[in-house]
Amino acid sequence: MTLLKRILDAATNVTAVIAGLCIVVMMGHVTLDVVLRSFFGRPMTGTIVFVANYYMVFLVCLPLAFVERFDSHISVEVLTERFPARVKHHLYGWTYPVTALIFAVIGYATWTEAMSKFAIRTFMIEKDMAISIWFGYFALPFGYALLSLYVLLKFVAYLAGQPLTPERLPGSEDLAVAHE
């Protein structure tokens, strides 16, 4: 199971790197378009298509499992907080398969859509430029499937009696203190 976790963690790290890159590239691309348009009268073609169909879908969907790994998906613990620890443990354990199934269904649906867009190699036309957009569709099935797998991993860990210890997002507080 540690091997399984190592593999999935590595995968989430890759998605994190891609999402981070998307942010940087999106900042740069949009700003460059603004500068070229406003100060040189030469807007770039297709900025909106790139932002929406490339950066945004990757940024929004790929890191879903990464977010799960650091327990950062928003859930509500107000009710269950008061439960005895044992009850809580088993309750949480059995919500995992439900959650994993839901995300797997989204993964399946978006996969079939991505394959149909791939089959026709769908693209957009901006001015006189054809921009392929089919592969952005794959960000969804990959993101949701990986998320589903990660939740399943937590379920398996629960069944094995070795629940994963929660990881903290890379330390932001430490940095703030260091800055003082």
Partner: peptide, 21 residues
């Protein structure tokens, strides 16, 4: 320009076509 042909028209007349939703 809301469509590609209007962007090309703008270009042809020496303007600059901006895509805004």
């Amino acid at each position: 320009a809301g469509a590609a042909n209007y962007a090309r028209w703008t270009d042809a007349l020496g303007g600059s076509a901006v895509t805004v939703p």
